[in-house]
């Protein structure tokens, strides 16, 4: 399509040069068309290779070796590190904690975010103020959030237990029992991320064609009917996006559990030790990068696995959506 028909010029004088120049220009044009798009997107891929792909494979290389943090590479040990990890009860406990915290944070987060976004999408006063207001928790650094919340959730002198006490409820061992500690950590995550997700949902809601609502109103649909029959189906791609990003974030959760107590190792009995904390413990406290890398790879495969499951579910949802 780039080549235009070219009338052969009569050969005279320095004419040999001319076709060559045109030829180059043409070839350049063709290259331009063929390769420039790749050139334009290459910065991402070059960066991705350096910061993403290379560490990925290097970690795999480390994970099959005996690897001290300081001394570096040791002998090749094959799958030994993976065997150790998979047979360690700590790993399975960390896996349980990670999933529990993930579910306790992501599920309520998406539900609250979509509900609040629907409220903010209405014609309320000082719209911009409320819309920006939900983002404030997101601006606070996770470490500061964790400090404040671990203070609120302190076992003996924390505000939350004090308040429960006024209702006659026994103090909860936020730093002792498994589920309460997960709940406390999930609260920090929700505090920080709900506002962010509200904005994403809000942006998507505003892209929903208004005539759908007008038609619904004429048909006599109430607010709730509109929400469930128009807003939610129209938001499906956005919901999928939010679910996927919060899955990835949730499985890699680190700051909040690390800052939850004074030691950052996830509790004396590993009550809230997540996979990333376990990885850190192996790699830094115990100085064994081989095992830590094995955990990193297992975590990676886990995320890929969940990605595939997400993908399958998503496809089903979207096809059913299309049929309707």
């Amino acid at each position: 399509m780039a080549t235009t028909t070219r009338t052969p010029a009569p050969a005279r004088g320095n004419t040999p040069r001319k076709p060559r120049r045109i030829g180059f220009g043409e070839r350049f044009n063709r290259w331009d068309l063929k390769f420039s798009p790749y050139l334009y997107i290459s910065p991402f891929f070059i960066l991705f290779f350096i910061t993403g792909l290379f560490p990925l494979f290097y970690t795999a290389f480390v994970s099959v070796h005996d690897w001290d943090t300081i001394m570096g590479q040791g002998t090749y040990v094959g799958m030994e590190n993976f065997q150790f990890i998979l047979s360690s009860p700590d790993f399975w406990k960390a896996l349980r904690n990670t999933f529990s915290i993930f579910l306790l944070s992501s599920v309520p987060q998406v539900i609250i975010a979509i509900t609040l976004a629907a409220v903010l999408d209405q014609n309320i006063r000082a719209k911009t103020f409320w819309r920006m207001g939900v983002l404030i928790p997101y601006v606070v650094t996770p470490v500061a959030v964790a400090l404040i919340f671990s203070n609120l959730f302190a076992d003996k002198f924390g505000l939350v237990n004090d308040m429960l006490g006024t209702f006659g409820i026994d103090p909860v061992g936020w730093h002792k029992e498994v589920l309460p500690s997960h709940f406390a950590i999930a609260t920090m995550v929700n505090f920080r991320w709900t506002g962010y997700n509200i904005l994403i949902f809000l942006a998507a809601m505003q892209a929903v064609p208004r005539d759908l609502y007008e038609a619904a109103v004429i048909d006599g649909a109430g607010r709730f009917r509109q929400f469930f029959s128009i807003t939610v189906p129209q938001l499906r791609p956005t919901i999928i996006f939010v679910v996927i990003t919060s899955t990835i974030g949730g499985l890699q959760i680190f700051d909040e559990p690390r800052m939850f107590d004074q030691f950052g190792r996830g509790g004396a009995d590993g009550q809230w030790q997540t996979l990333t904390i376990y990885l850190y413990e192996l790699g830094w406290t115990q100085g064994d990068f081989g095992r830590a890398s094995a955990v990193a790879w297992l975590l990676f495969m886990l995320i890929v696995l969940i990605g595939i499951i997400n993908f399958a579910i998503t496809r089903r949802i979207s096809t059913s959506g299309d049929k309707r």
């Binding site: 910061t51 560490p55 990885l279 990068f289 975590l299 995320i303």
Partner: peptide, 9 residues
């Protein structure tokens, strides 16, 4: 995923 691994390194 890669970022998670990069954590170690």
């Amino acid at each position: 995923g890669a970022a998670a691994l990069a954590l170690t390194l």
